[in-house]
Design a binder for these strands. Structure first.
Lengths: 314, 314
DNA sequence: TATAATGGTGACAGATTCTGTCATGAACTC
DNA sequence: GAGTTCATGACAGAATCTGTCACCATTATA
């Protein structure tokens, strides 16, 4: 086998089994250990972070972060990826820590000069805007980890209504919307799924009390929309086409929104009575683009709110 | 020079000069043409899309999209990049056409099995949400191209106030905000910078009338905030901390917003008299989180609007 | 402390691969 | 037809790579 091929395969092998001994590889590839040692040194020079320990139970390890087999992108793909990662800079917190920055940098540095020029030319011409907020969410990584591996966390949560509380939660997913990170999780305190704002989770650590994790099974991202209303109240409204447009921006509405061929639409859903003040404000914002049909309580709330505001501005 | 190194450099060289002859490379690398031919064949096998033509003025070309030198990412970087690109799927139009999808696919396919598993595990657990809108913007690519290369475009623009009109514009930048694409451009019709909604640009093609492009020089992304008010009116308001939070989400406000240490803030800016109805609605939305100080006209407008709504809900 | 396991390095001959040369051919331009 | 350029095969010589061996260093364990 030509050396070049062997090196490629060696890189893959080494990445798969992150711990190995020289002799193993020598057998596997049918070459001498000396050759493998030479090859490993070349891999090192090529950037694979190898680390070795001598003595019994020693051996090689791919240290820290292993390097994946190199991928060749076309120019167009590379540019698209660059801007995708570039767009992430708007987020003040990410579940991936600094990696996206280093990826961006690596990307940029590996480009031949002219592609780099092209990127530079575009950098100030394209942007994906995401609202930025102060709210740092330091615990995104642990939340994500818990969601993926189905672990229970103990968290300190500072809710708007109830002040700070300790609870055990099992995260289902995390998502960024409108500049803030949210986490849908099963809350063992409330015994149900709840959505938490990640920047309000003050502390999070893996639970040690031995709470049995739930099998969330197919419960996944779509769960974020779920929040069974307590004291459900039926809400019905008609929307003009531009009312529909404005509602489409609101994620929490997406599930309840029906859109017709002509662009107009309707909302028909159960909502929690406690949320009525919130909806009041929302429908005021919609102005003439919505015709509210029920509930009466919401109309009341809207009227009260309007009178209040009118008084403020008198 | 060892063959492996030569191949690397050959790939770079070939990517830089996208057209070349075997003899050239042979001279450059100090090897025979036969060797270069053999090497080029290997590059082909490695995926570099080479194409050759025989005869005078023939030679090699890197066909279609050239392939960039392979980049090795760490696992963490790769995951971060994957999700960055993954997030782009929310956009119904992109200035890069299908490339991001193919990049994503390539990424996914090149991962060793376990990393792929990890990505699969995370796929339903993390998301970057962007509001989706129907508004397709088919002309993003040409707009971007014009912005980068300072070209003048003829466009058909369907504005809300004035109906459809033909105009020549010179794009400065394009940006996505809240699910819609916008383009800041110098408008030769209005003789000033304007912001266009890209989905309302019905047709765009390079201008052939010979309009001289402007030297936009350092005019860049920041331009998108500029829109000198006609008939300026001073607007002043105080904001509570949560009022500030809500204003920060609004891009067009960012420039006018002053934030204090304690989280509260203020707006003090000139606005166009024509925009008063818009601001009225906005301040109604802010409710108690804002105290409007002037102008009186805006207060009037708000009062009118409130009474109107109140009547609707009576 | 001795022993065995493991990595690290240098030297060198022999094996293997790579390279240059030459020959031949095919396609294309002018 | 002459000249240019890519394409391919063969083969000997050059260059590189590989295996072997000798020796060292470190560490865990008996």
């Amino acid at each position: 086998m030509p050396k070049s091929k062997r090196l490629m395969e060696l890189m893959m092998t080494v990445n798969r089994k992150r711990r190995f001994k020289v002799q193993e590889l020598a057998d596997e590839f049918g070459v001498s250990t000396r050759t493998i040692l030479r090859d490993l040194q070349e891999l090192s020079e090529l950037g694979v972070p190898l680390y070795s320990e001598v003595g019994p139970h020693g051996g090689y390890q791919v240290v820290r972060e292993r390097v994946l087999p190199p991928i060749a992108f076309t120019e167009e793909e590379a540019v698209a990826m660059f801007f995708a990662v570039h767009a992430l800079r708007h987020y003040s917190s990410l579940p991936f820590e600094a990696e996206s920055a280093s990826a961006l940098n690596k990307f940029y540095l590996h480009m031949p000069g002219d592609v780099r020029d092209r990127i530079d030319g575009m950098k100030n011409r394209v942007d994906f805007i995401t609202p930025t907020r102060r709210g740092d969410a330091p615990c995104l990584a642990i939340l994500l980890d818990a969601a993926v591996h189905r672990k229970v966390l103990s968290v300190e949560y500072e809710s708007t209504e109830e002040g700070t509380s300790s609870r055990r939660i099992q995260p289902v997913c995390i998502y960024a919307n409108n500049g803030l990170w949210y986490c849908t999780a099963y809350c063992f305190l409330r015994e149900g799924y709840r959505v938490f704002r990640c920047d309000r989770i003050r502390e999070a650590e893996f639970d040690v009390s031995g709470t049995e994790p739930l099998d969330l099974g197919d419960v996944n991202l779509s769960r974020r929309e779920v929040a069974e209303p307590r004291e459900p109240v039926r809400l019905r409204a008609e929307l003009s086409p531009s009312g529909v447009q404005r509602c489409e921006v609101e994620l929490w509405l997406a599930r309840m929104l029906q859109v017709r061929e002509d662009g107009s639409g309707a909302i028909d859903t159960d909502v929690s009575r406690a949320d009525i003040p919130f909806y009041a404000e929302f429908f005021i914002g919609l102005g003439n683009e919505a015709v509210l049909e029920e509930p009466e309580e919401l109309k009341d709330s809207i009227r009260r709110r309007l009178s209040e505001l009118l008084a403020r501005y008198q």
